[in-house]
Amino acid sequence: MLKILKYSFYDLMRSRWSYVYFAFYLLLGVVLLFLNNNLSKAIITLMNVIIVLVPLIGTIFGVMYYYNSKEFTELLLAQPLKRSSIFLGQYLGVALSLSMSLILGLGIPFIFYGLFKSNVIWDFSLLLITGTFLTFIFTALAFNIALSNENKIKGFGYAILLWLFLAVVYDGIFLMSLILFEDYPLDKLSLTGTMLNPIDLSRTLILLKLDISALLGYTGAIFKRFFGTNLGFIVSLTMLLVWVILPVLRIVSKSKRKDF
């Protein structure tokens, strides 16, 4: 698996798209910091970008990589290699190279700006950690979609739909159901709803840092325990991890049963 990972990673690190992605984040970081000259505002804007864009790019890139390297995958399948190593290797290659672009692209301008001397370093690190998690989750979801759909167009379609659903539609439905059931205690419903969507989960993790003042304004005991203590942070991180593990497991089992 490590060998496949190594080659996928090298292959991607040299691809045009990695550079584009890296350059995009580099530019974003520079514009946010040096034109705006305001670290706190930059962090808030970055959060919006990371939560929306990282999943989108993870999905699209994952699907694209899978379909583009289909023949090469077949070549690998004829080698004395386990299927799980081939797909996990490729998956990790994509996820790692995307994460690298993200971390370096944003990290470099922030380091030049003097991040280490600033107290927002924790907020920033949390952003990068969340971004990395989202990359791993959505690349895994993309691989799942691609493994289940031979048809490229269909695969891309489902990938976009998945992103649209998790990034926008889900929250719409979520909001409607909260308003609809406002007469009932909603603590549990709202927290569960958040746990079931990795984008909401990451958002919550960041809210814990940026908007704790507002979050603490609510009476519900579960809310209070969740946001007032480290519980929220730990639970959210654990759930993110689960969100990585489950799709990866499905990649393994699906790839074992698939015909190429």
Partner: peptide, 20 residues
């Protein structure tokens, strides 16, 4: 305004849907 009405919706703060 929504949060005033249904406080638990605060959990959706900064969501893309809310921005829209």
């Amino acid at each position: 305004y929504i949060v005033n009405r249904t406080p638990e919706t605060i959990i959706l703060l900064r969501s893309l849907f809310i921005d829209i």
